[in-house]
Design a protein around this nucleic acid. Structure first.
Lengths: 338, 338
DNA sequence: TTTGGCACTCTCGGACGGAGAGTGCTGAAC
DNA sequence: GTTCAGCACTCTCCGTCCGAGAGTGCCAAA
């Protein structure tokens, strides 16, 4: 695209994202292109409109970027906005003070992200394709009831109540714990499964089975933890002034099932994904943009981190801050975890 | 209050909660009091308005209950609405399928409550005034880094990374684990503290200190887990049509700090608490009502469960269903927990 | 190719007015 | 003394109208 058209498109996006008001030729002229006349800008705008990058709410209104307009902007025109120092240190502080457990960490990450981007955020707990058991513990609740505690890679705790066929004392359990620990710790579910097959019938096999079940659930992600935060930030945007639009978004956010699927679909090859308006598979997110990246303590353990806001979003700022939070969280988790 | 006035107040509340439209004398006459003339009803309404139970949005509009009107209704006129069988079994199913860990359980409870009351819900994890350690485990991460896993009463897991001054092997830790377990399990924080004071300097004392710190945090509730769900249900109500009202509510719900304080304040003597509109300490909840009860696996371990909606709420239905969910959750937790 | 000029279009906000809903009051009936 | 029909009154709601203002597209000249 011609250079000047690009500049004008960039200016329209910038102006509209900050003011939320359709931008006219005069506004552009006085604020961005003092050496051009508004008439010239008008003809450029008309051209950009013909090509599908801009649209007008009505005949005599200013221009608004279309989804394709935003798309062109993020693909070719956007440069990352530098992050102010106080935002940087805010992120650092938040991560440093984050709780050590995955649950708490994920919540903190979502909170921080929502706060620095002033939009809604989502975060899923890091998951590995091959979950490994780091440690395991058995606690006797009742004679035939055992609490199985599993510490997975990334310091993720899982617990499950197991009703066994045989009774066992805590002393027996302690011995069993030691045996299972040396057999399983550091091993993946495949290796655990081999162990399971060779084990003789009895309590040990029973418990091994449960361990494998937990690992499977975890790997399939059906147990996945997804949190969201910052819906209140969306309410400040004029596009959510009447609540009908928000309803749609909230349905996606609060229905964790949807969200899980959405995140899994979206996080494909690229490490930064921007989905704008109608590009969204889910029709509920019309008018919204989703910016996603991954994070986690290691290459094998990755979760998804995302920002959801109106398509009229400060993309360059959002992307920069999203990546900063992802980096901060990853570092912190690496430090605590694996 | 005279019997007929009560009936009329009840009718106004009922009509308004279902229709959301100010209710006039004619509507009451045709739907509730066929043997009375609308003029008679009008004079009764005028009386109820004088006494402060009703109000008019404007001179020639129908009546709307005031906060005192709702208060009178819930105190004297409300009778619990029976719960349909399918709702009952919905609750039972949800509780049966709930995960065994506290985190998951609390989330499930909030979700269920939001769903059956069609309002927003909050739930806090059960907490005891005296937390007891049920089991403890130490896992070596690095030579001088230990992951401390605490299983508290109610099967609540806590984890914390401890950086120690001395290095320790996993074998040493295993021994230490056994010693600490026999010393601490079933003991409250007071007893743990006695232990701590008598312990000689060293790793054991260091760890005991951390255990106590975790217990303290837990008892003070500053670590407390509070979740919410069902905000999308509020959006269906006309009082949240423009989003400004919702902003307030979301600020309370998403700022867990506020919520924690709110719940702690509110759950006083009674096991069922209804706070209507201006009775709310927090001015953010003007126009909203909060219905609260407690739940938990035992007498000593109680969490708070609440419904938040517009003051124009189906109180009798809400209370009945809230109590049903609380009962279901308590039973299930008792079964799993203590 | 750019630009000033100009007619045109559309929204926005305020004013106006009629329809409708609901009220309070009054005087008569029971 | 309670109930009720009748009636005037009040206020909202909604549609219409109109002028101001913003922005456009087009055209002819530089």
């Amino acid at each position: 695209m011609e250079n000047r058209k690009q500049s004008i498109l960039r200016a329209v996006v910038h102006e509209f994202t900050t003011s939320a008001v359709p931008v006219g030729s005069q506004a552009l002229q006085s604020r961005y292109f003092v050496n051009l006349s508004s008439a010239t800008i008008r003809s450029e705008l008309a051209e950009l409109t013909d090509r599908g990058y801009l649209t007008q709410p009505h005949t005599s209104a200013g221009r608004v970027p279309t989804d394709s307009g935003y798309r062109y902007f993020v693909d070719f025109l956007m440069d990352l906005e530098p992050i102010p120092d106080r935002v940087k240190s805010f992120i650092d502080d938040a991560m440093r003070a984050a709780p050590a457990d995955v649950q708490g960490m994920v919540e903190r990450v979502a909170m921080t992200l929502a706060s620095v981007t002033q939009n809604a955020s989502v975060a899923s707990a890091p998951q590995g394709s091959l979950a490994r058991v780091k440690h395991l513990d058995l606690v006797s609740l009742e004679p035939k009831e055992i609490l199985l505690i599993l510490l997975l890679e990334g310091n993720l705790l899982r617990q499950q109540v197991v009703n066994t066929t045989e009774a066992a004392s805590q002393a027996q359990l302690t011995k069993l714990t030691a045996r299972l620990n040396s057999a399983l710790s550091g091993r993946s579910s495949d290796e655990a499964r081999r162990h399971y097959e060779q084990a003789p019938l009895g309590l040990e096999k029973e418990l091994l089975g449960r361990v494998i079940a937990v690992l499977d659930l975890y790997e399939k992600g059906s147990e996945s933890l997804v949190v969201h935060d910052g819906v209140r930030n969306l309410l400040r945007q004029p596009e959510f002034a009447e609540s009908s639009r928000l309803t749609q978004v909230l349905e996606v956010l609060e229905e964790t099932r949807y969200l899980t699927v959405l995140l899994r679909q979206l996080i494909g090859q690229s490490d930064l994904q921007i989905v704008i308006g109608s590009e969204n598979a889910s029709s509920q997110l019309q008018g919204c943009a989703v910016v996603l990246t991954t994070y986690g303590p290691s290459e094998r353990l990755k979760g998804v981190l995302g920002v959801i806001g109106p398509t009229r979003m400060a993309y360059s700022q959002t992307v920069a801050r999203l990546q900063a939070v992802a980096r901060g969280a990853s570092d912190r988790m690496a430090e605590l975890g694996a």
